[in-house]
Amino acid sequence: MSVALRAAPLVLVAAVVQVTTISGTRLLGAEPDLLLVTIVCLALVSGSIPGAVAGFAGGLLVDVMTLGTLGTSSILLTLAGYWAGRYGETTGRGRAYAPALAAFAISLAATIGGVTLHFLLGQPVSARDALITALPSALLAAVLALGVIRICRAVLAEPPGFERSRQVELV
């Protein structure tokens, strides 16, 4: 079974839970972003291209479900999935701290990127509110990543006997 078929239910469930349950919930003064963490963990396990595709699909789902500006979440999550996948392919795949570190850093980058994108589109955005909640949101993402990575590894595990060489060799 391909990575896309195994990853699609993860992205769908994370997007639905994000919009229906988590939206509006505050912990430590910030809203947890389960979809972003799922995309990051999925990209760490499967690579940059599946991460980018999952980010685009998840962002499009969220934009359609919330009736937001179509494409804003998609572009942010596509970039998040791609860069998390690149980190996983080059240095972070086998390290224990990789999911938490990637989720923390990409959550900060996505917050700043989201503010910038909304500003460039001419939409009203409070940079002060977004930047105040950026650090607590990144901490929540790092904590969520510790559990989500286990689910992603279990769902996206390769079949027995299948060997994949995806490590990038630096010359």
Rank of each mutant, 00 (worst) to 15 (best):
V11G: 00
T72G: 02
P136A: 10
R150C: 08
S48I: 04
G59H: 01
G94D: 14
E158S: 14
T111R: 03
M65N: 09
R164Q: 11
A154H: 10
R150H: 11
S23Y: 12
I112L: 14
V53L: 14
A134K: 03
S46N: 09
M1W: 07
V53Y: 08
G55V: 03
L108H: 10
T91G: 12
G113C: 02
I149R: 06
A145T: 04
P159V: 08
L101Q: 02
A4W: 12
D63Y: 06
G59I: 00
L12W: 05
A105G: 07
A98N: 00
S46A: 13
R6Y: 03
L42W: 08
R150L: 11
Q167V: 14
Q123T: 13
T20D: 15
S2F: 04
Q167Y: 15
L36D: 05
A8R: 03
P99M: 04
D129G: 10
L12E: 06
G55W: 04
A100V: 01
T38H: 07
S126F: 12
E158K: 08
A43E: 09
T116K: 11
R86D: 05
A14F: 05
L67P: 06
V11Q: 02
P50M: 04
L10R: 05
G51D: 03
E169K: 14
A145K: 01
T116M: 15
A8M: 09
F162M: 14
D33T: 10
G24D: 11
A14H: 03
V53T: 14
A96H: 13
A130Q: 08
G88K: 02
T90L: 11
A130C: 08
W83F: 15
T72Y: 07
T66Y: 04
T90H: 12
L10I: 07
A157H: 03
R93M: 10
Y82D: 00
P160R: 07
G94W: 04
A30T: 07
Y87S: 10
Q18L: 00
L42V: 13
L61P: 00
S126M: 14
Q18A: 04
R26K: 15
Q167C: 09
C41K: 03
S74W: 09
R150S: 15
D33G: 05
V168I: 12
A110F: 12
A43M: 00
T38E: 02
L27F: 09
A141G: 06
P159R: 13
G81L: 02
R150D: 00
E169L: 15
E89L: 08
L44D: 02
L28D: 03
G59C: 05
A100F: 07
G92F: 04
S2K: 03
A54H: 01
R166P: 01
A134R: 01
I22Y: 08
P159N: 04
V45C: 05
L121Y: 09
A30C: 04
R153P: 01
T116F: 15
L34Y: 01
A14I: 00
L60V: 14
